[in-house]
């Protein structure tokens, strides 16, 4: 075990633990935000730079500070390391910079985005007091496309966290989508028209931190904050069958995997559980989801924006009408 101090709070962790995971062990406000790291996906992390922290003392043996801010999700803790996160103005400033840069090409159309209410970027931006960037230039745009029967891709909203490609590598035999091109014009794509269709493809939606990959069956049916999340399970031969049912009354609006306090799924679920069991009788309901990830919605801070929405658009599955609405905006 090694000792590490983060924002003046000391804890002990196994050797090889990252600073981020050490912070998560402490918990609370000092945990750096993470938009690309995903503990169950090896190879994730390091890309979004949201989790930057300051290392004031590298270790007990080498008490010098590290010259640059480091990504806490991929920097291992050292014995005697002293880290500053929210107590460092430099970190807060850098993080604000990261948010602003992430928004440079982001449409910020939360009012018409299915992810609103459970979006890491929306939370991240809100927390740093930024709702837009100072960039006045046109954003890169892409038309939304269907990748297979279940998933829609809004590339304009993608923050290129690489999680969906990693999940595909891990859960499927042959990945058919990937990251194409380079730099600012990189995009998630299949390159040729190709459906993403295998038993676990739905998990890409759950790992996506933003509204870039969304559930076509759920789109526009309802806003998450009007729904009741319930833990439930069923016997499934392909996966653990442990899910969250998103209910309004007795109607199942959506089935997702279970996310932990940091928005991560540890038990990936199969597409059958996700999309073929919309009957409540198929499930053993365990009870209300014990916790909710912190979000601007839960904190009641999002009302102003939600009011702009024409209510009827959420009432029924009505893609045609919605498309018209999108055409107008």
């Amino acid at each position: 075990m090694i000792r590490i101090t983060i924002d003046d709070i000391e804890t002990q962790v196994e050797e090889g633990t990252t600073i981020l995971n050490a912070a998560r062990k402490i918990g609370g406000k000092i945990v750096p935000p993470a938009m690309c790291y995903y503990s169950s996906l090896p190879g994730s992390g390091g890309k979004c730079r949201a989790c930057l922290v300051k290392v004031e003392q590298a270790s007990a043996r080498d008490p010098r500070p590290m010259p640059k801010l480091v990504a806490s999700c991929c920097t291992p803790a050292q014995d005697g390391m002293v880290v500053r996160n929210i107590t460092s103005p430099e970190v807060i400033e850098a993080r604000k910079g990261v948010v602003e840069l992430l928004l440079v090409n982001h449409p910020l159309d939360c009012p018409i985005c299915d992810q609103a209410g459970e979006c890491d970027l929306q939370n991240f931006a809100y927390e740093h007091g930024l709702e837009k960037t100072r960039s006045e230039f046109p954003r890169r745009t892409f038309d939304p496309i269907d990748i297979g029967p279940h998933i829609q891709l809004h590339m304009t909203r993608c923050i290129l966290c690489y999680r969906c490609t990693l999940v595909a590598d891990q859960l499927t035999n042959e990945r058919v989508h990937g990251i194409l091109w380079r730099g600012e014009v990189s995009e998630i794509s299949t390159y040729i028209q190709k459906a993403i269709d295998n038993d676990f493809s739905g998990n890409m939606i759950d790992v996506c931190p933003v509204g870039a990959l969304t559930d076509k069956h759920f789109r526009f049916r309802n806003r998450v904050w009007f729904l009741n999340p319930m833990d439930a399970h069923r016997a499934c031969s392909k996966c653990s069958g442990k899910v969250v049912l998103w209910l309004r009354g007795k109607e199942i609006y959506r089935v997702t995997a279970r996310k932990d306090a940091y928005g991560e799924v540890h038990d990936f679920i199969c597409n059958a559980c996700r999309w073929e069991h919309y009957d409540l009788n198929d499930w053993v309901v365990e009870g209300p989801r014990s916790f909710q990830p912190w979000s601007v919605i839960n904190a009641n801070k999002y009302n102003a924006q939600t009011k702009e929405l024409p209510d009827q658009l959420y009432s029924k599955l009505d893609n045609r009408r919605w498309n018209e609405f999108e055409g107008v905006t």
Partner: peptide, 12 residues
């Protein structure tokens, strides 16, 4: 290789 691996590299 799977085709997507080749597309990823060729477009880079």
């Amino acid at each position: 290789l799977s085709p997507i691996e080749v597309y990823e590299v060729a477009t880079f």
